[in-house]
Design a protein around this nucleic acid. Structure first.
Lengths: 128, 128
DNA sequence: TTAATCCTTCCAGTGACCGGAAGGTCAAGC
DNA sequence: GCTTGACCTTCCGGTCACTGGAAGGATTAA
């Protein structure tokens, strides 16, 4: 399987697959023509990576998860810990965004939004 | 006022202030020694930028907001539009993160988190 | 044979900075 | 006057996770 087919099969752009090889997440071997040759195991890893990334895990998280995935002697506790740390980061981020949302909504509510220059939003940004 | 004092007064790192000059958000003039010299107007702009950034506006949003801030003939509607677009982006981002949060929480709940290798989190990531 | 499509590597850019190096300037103390 | 240390300058490289594009080799279909 060449990279184009692999891209289709995994849902990841070919560029991204090359990048994942660059940073050592996968190690496809090479044909005589220098082309990357992908196996079913490569496909499973790429799908694993695709799904992990889509859940917001960082590349380094993915590296750890992949190594746990490969390790038959793993403890599920290690996986759970990683996931819980990630969950907490998400929770914090949501809280930050909700605070921003409240502030901004409040400011927008106060602004008439007409053709006059007076604007409580700008006033607030200026620190008035 | 030199950049160090300005950094203290605005709450922005000196590095960031230089960067804002680089990309044309501010234009402090220079003393005979080549040092940047900041005025009260510069201070107000930097505080405006600091506050806008802390509300999550992008640099390009800040550029637009700053130009509206400087423009006596602005319409508050223009400001409100920018803010509303930003609010919507935040709303979408929160929804995405909440979806991630739910999915991840669900997965974590299913994982025993002990020293056995069986792990529903990895199973899910693998697409099982 | 030719053209189109694939593949390769390498370089540069994204956003919004941050760290650090090399070197000029300034104020204080001796 | 000299040194020391704190400040300032510019420039280069790194961050994260890719993405776009150029230059050139390989393969496939007509």
């Amino acid at each position: 399987m060449n990279i184009g087919d692999m891209a289709e099969a995994s849902g990841l752009p070919a560029k991204t697959i090359r990048y994942y090889e660059d940073i050592g997440l996968i190690r496809p071997h090479r044909g005589d023509n220098g082309y990357r040759v992908f196996t079913e195991a490569d496909r499973q890893k790429l799908i694993f990576l695709s799904r992990s990334r889509s859940l917001g895990f960082s590349i380094e998280d993915c590296r750890s998860l992949l190594s746990l995935y490969d390790n038959r002697d793993r403890s599920s506790a290690d996986v759970k810990n990683l996931a819980e740390e990630h969950l907490e980061r998400i929770r914090v981020k949501i809280a930050e965004l909700e605070s921003l949302h409240r502030t901004l909504k409040h400011l927008i509510h106060k602004c008439h939004g007409d053709d006059r220059p007076e604007c409580p939003i700008l006033d607030d940004l200026a620190g008035a």
